[in-house]
Design a binder for these strands. Structure first.
Length: 201
DNA sequence: CAAACGATTTTCT
DNA sequence: GAAAATCGTTTGG
């Protein structure tokens, strides 16, 4: 089943980040169906989190989407090259979000290979937020899209991830965030080949 | 209006 | 392991 809005509007962004592990992210762009199981996420806890774009209640055209009600996509460009896909959470006016960092390909693998210009299926096809977005065809133009379709949605297919298989770690690429770089807001499925190799602290 | 920079990936040594 | 690639957003004049 497709996750309902109530899944995203909960107030505990860390809990949502953990709950998203094992869910299936699906995109349907121009008739191209691709899907993968989420294996790695990071939580960004709004105005008090120095690693968040919304730190200090900063509202700009780019971050405005995080102040909307949970349940939509926030996609932005990083390093001028990579598109990163986030899920907006919490209620309106509270800018929380979960970054989806990696998935395990399930459907439309041939399409992903083509988008990534790869010959064979290797873990790095979707290991890492920029790579994953490229494989699924996600672009900054998709910011604001609802996460219950028709083009982007996240499903619960009954996959259960045992608590002992969820690993908490520090977030990647946020060393500038001082003490907030130390919080264990990154979650991934233990021993999964598609988890990115990015280093926390 | 100009300048600096980043929630990364790839390539080359 | 280190460095380059590359551009929209943010910030300062």
């Amino acid at each position: 089943m497709i996750l309902p809005g109530s899944f995203y509007t909960r107030k505990d962004v860390v809990r949502i980040a953990k709950d998203l592990l094992g869910k299936v992210l699906v995109t349907e762009f121009e008739g191209q169906h691709t899907a993968g199981m989420i294996v790695e996420t990071e939580a960004y806890a709004g105005t008090s989190d120095k690693a968040s774009h919304a730190f200090g209640n900063r509202r700009t055209r780019r971050t405005e989407i995080m102040y909307r009600e949970g349940g939509m996509a926030y996609v932005y460009l990083i390093y001028g090259i990579h598109h990163l896909f986030n899920v907006v959470t919490h209620l309106a006016e509270i800018p929380h979000a979960v970054l989806i960092r990696a998935i395990e390909p399930l459907e439309g693998i041939d399409i992903m290979l083509e988008r990534r210009k790869m010959e064979t299926l290797k873990p790095n096809i979707t290991a890492g937020p920029g790579a994953m977005s490229a494989a699924l065809g996600i672009h900054t133009r998709h910011t604001g899209y609802m996460l219950h379709g028709p083009e982007i949605f996240i499903e619960d297919r009954g996959i259960k991830v045992p608590a002992r298989d969820i690993v908490a770690a520090t977030r990647v690429g946020v060393a500038y965030a001082a003490e907030d770089a130390l919080v264990p807001y990154r979650f991934y499925i233990k021993d999964n080949k598609y988890v990115s190799k990015g280093k926390g602290l």
